[in-house]
Design a protein around this nucleic acid. Structure first.
Length: 419
RNA sequence: GGAGGGGUGGCCGAGCGGUCAAUGGCAGCAGACUGUAAAUCUGCCGGACUUUGUCCUACGAAGGUUCAAAUCCUUCCCCCUCCA
C-alpha cells in the first residue's frame, strides 16, 4: 500500500485526507489513468458551507489538479428528506424555497476551489442537483427498481440507524429512506456523468458503501468510496467553532478578515496538519514551517492563514486581511479594513453610552452582555479599557476620518464610522 | 387500545410549594500569564432599565388551586418502555 501509481492517491495519503477506502488499489488505477469521476454531496440546510466541509472540497480540488474530474452535488432533493447520520434528532424540515435559496448561495463558494470551465487541459468540474432526478421519482417504480436491492436487516445495522435505535431516539420512515436516495444518487451520477467514486466525511461511510453496492447490483458497475477523517483540533474540540458560531465560507456570513483570523489563531500543534489539509503548499515547505518553535511558529500561522484565505476568498482579500491584521496587531494602528459598522454622525454627536456602542458594533448580543463585558474589563475604546459601562462615547473619540475603534478583549476589533 | 416512565436554560443534568432566573458539569465570553498558541488560575454566562434595586420573560401547551407553583390539580400535545 506504500506505493501509489496515481498522484491523486499519493497526495491524499501524504496529506492526511484518507480515513477509509473501499478498494484502494483499483481506485488508484482509475486515478492514475485519469478516469476518476468523483462526487461529494452537500446538504442545503444553510446558506453557506463552513470549514467542516472544507476537507472534502480540498479533495475535489486535488482530484481536479491531478487530472481527474470532480462533481459537486447539491442536495436539493435529499435535503428535503434529512440525513440522520450523526444526528440524535430529526432535522427540521426546510421549505423548497429555503433550499433553493441556500443552494444558490452555496454554489458560489465552490468557484474558488474548483474550476467549472475546462482550462489548461483540465477537465471541467460539474455541479449537479439531485432534485433534478429525485423529484421525478415515482414510489412504486422506485421500490421495484431500487428498493428491492436493499435489505432492511442490513439497513438496521448501519450506524446512522442503529445509533438512533440504541439510544431510543426516534427515526422517522422519511429519514430511514435517506440512505436509499443517496445510494440512488450515486447510480444516477454514474449514468449521467460516468461518475465512479464518492467521497465524504467519515460519518458518510455507511451511505457511501450502500451506494457502491447498489451500483454493482443495478448497473454492474464498479464504484469506489473514500471517506476523510473528522478533523478535530489538537485539544480534541470539533473544529470550526468561534464566538460567532461556525466558520462560514461565504463572505456575507464571515468576512475574509475574520476567516483569516480564524486560521491565524490555530493551535501550535495543529499548524502542520492544517497546512497539509487546507492549503496547496508543498510538503517540504510545510515541513520547514511546522518545525518553527516558540514565538516563531506565528510566522507559520500567518502563512497558513494567508493560503487558506486565498483559496476561499481570493488573493486580494487574503492580502488585505493579512495587512489589516498586521496593522491592528503588530502596529496597534487603526486599519481601514477591520469590520466596520456605520452609525449616524448625529447620534455620535449627542453621545452614546459605551455599552450601547459595543452592542451596535456587534461585539455583544445585548446591552446586558455589553455591560458585563465592560465590568469584566474586556471592553476597549481606541485600545483603552473602558472604565464605566455608561461612559459616553462621542465624536470626540473619533479620529480625523470619523472612526472609533471598539474592541471586545484584545482580539476582536470593530470600527465605528460616523456617517 | 391498556399499563408505566418522562418532557427543565446552547447541550447534559439536579430541583419537586416560598430563601429559584433555577445546584453542578460541558460549551461560550472576558481578565491574568503568554506568542493573536496551549495549559493553568479568576470572573461572567435570560432580557430591559434610572443596576447593591425594580420590572419583564422562562422549567412541553393551556387552564386551575394557593398569599405564593418548575414544584400540587385538570385537560391537551409530544417522546420512551412493556403489553394487546
Amino acid at each position: 500500500m506504500a506505493q501509489f501509481k496515481s498522484d491523486f492517491m499519493r497526495v491524499l495519503h501524504e496529506r492526511g485526507f484518507v480515513h477509509q477506502c473501499t478498494a484502494p488499489e483499483a481506485l488508484d488505477e482509475q486515478a492514475a489513468a485519469g478516469r476518476l469521476v468523483a462526487y461529494v454531496g452537500y446538504d442545503c440546510t444553510a446558506d453557506s458551507l463552513h470549514i467542516g466541509h472544507l476537507v472534502s472540497i480540498m479533495i475535489l480540488r486535488w482530484l481536479q489538479k491531478t487530472g481527474n474530474q470532480p462533481i459537486a452535488l447539491m442536495g436539493g432533493g435529499t435535503t428535503k428528506v434529512g440525513d440522520p447520520s450523526g444526528r440524535d434528532e430529526t432535522r427540521k424540515l426546510l421549505t423548497a424555497e429555503q433550499i433553493d435559496a441556500n443552494m444558490a448561495a452555496i454554489r458560489r463558494s465552490f468557484a474558488n476551489f474548483i474550476d467549472f470551465d475546462a482550462v489548461g487541459g483540465r477537465k471541467a468540474a460539474v455541479m449537479a442537483n439531485n432534485a433534478d432526478w429525485l423529484d421525478q421519482l415515482l414510489y412504486i417504480p422506485l421500490l421495484r427498481d431500487v428498493g428491492r436491492h436493499f435489505s432492511v436487516n442490513r439497513m438496521l445495522t448501519m450506524d446512522s440507524v442503529r445509533l438512533r435505535l440504541e439510544r431510543d431516539q426516534p427515526l422517522s420512515f422519511l429519514e430511514f429512506n435517506y440512505m436509499i436516495l443517496q445510494s440512488y444518487d450515486f447510480v444516477e451520477l454514474a449514468r449521467r456523468f460516468g461518475c465512479n467514486a464518492q467521497f465524504g466525511g467519515s460519518d458518510q461511510w455507511g451511505n457511501i458503501v450502500m451506494g457502491v453496492e447498489l451500483g454493482r447490483r443495478m448497473e454492474d458497475r464498479e464504484l469506489f468510496g473514500l471517506t476523510c477523517p473528522l478533523i478535530t483540533t489538537a485539544s480534541g474540540a470539533k473544529m470550526g467553532k468561534t464566538a460567532a458560531g461556525a466558520v462560514w465560507l461565504n463572505p456575507e456570513r464571515l468576512s475574509p478578515y475574520d476567516y483569516w483570523q480564524f486560521w491565524r489563531n490555530t493551535e501550535d500543534a495543529d499548524v502542520g496538519r492544517f497546512m497539509k489539509l487546507f492549503t496547496d503548499l508543498p510538503l517540504d515547505e510545510i515541513a520547514r514551517l511546522e518545525k518553527l518553535a516558540g514565538a516563531e511558529i506565528n510566522d507559520a500561522k500567518k502563512v497558513l492563514a494567508f493560503e487558506a484565505t486565498r483559496l476561499c476568498h481570493g488573493e486580494k482579500a487574503a492580502r488585505e486581511a493579512a495587512e489589516t491584521a498586521r496593522k491592528t496587531f503588530e502596529e496597534g494602528a487603526l486599519a481601514d479594513n477591520l469590520p466596520t459598522v456605520d452609525v449616524p454622525r448625529a447620534t455620535l454627536e449627542t453621545g452614546l453610552p459605551a455599552y450601547e456602542v459595543l452592542r451596535l458594533a456587534g461585539l455583544a448580543a445585548s446591552n446586558a452582555e455589553a455591560r458585563r463585558l465592560i465590568k469584566g474589563g474586556g471592553g476597549r475604546l481606541n485600545d483603552a479599557q473602558i472604565a464605566s459601562e455608561t461612559a459616553a462615547v462621542t465624536m470626540a473619540d473619533a479620529d480625523a476620518e470619523g472612526r472609533i475603534k471598539v474592541s471586545a478583549g484584545r482580539k476582536k476589533h470593530v470600527l465605528i464610522r460616523a456617517v
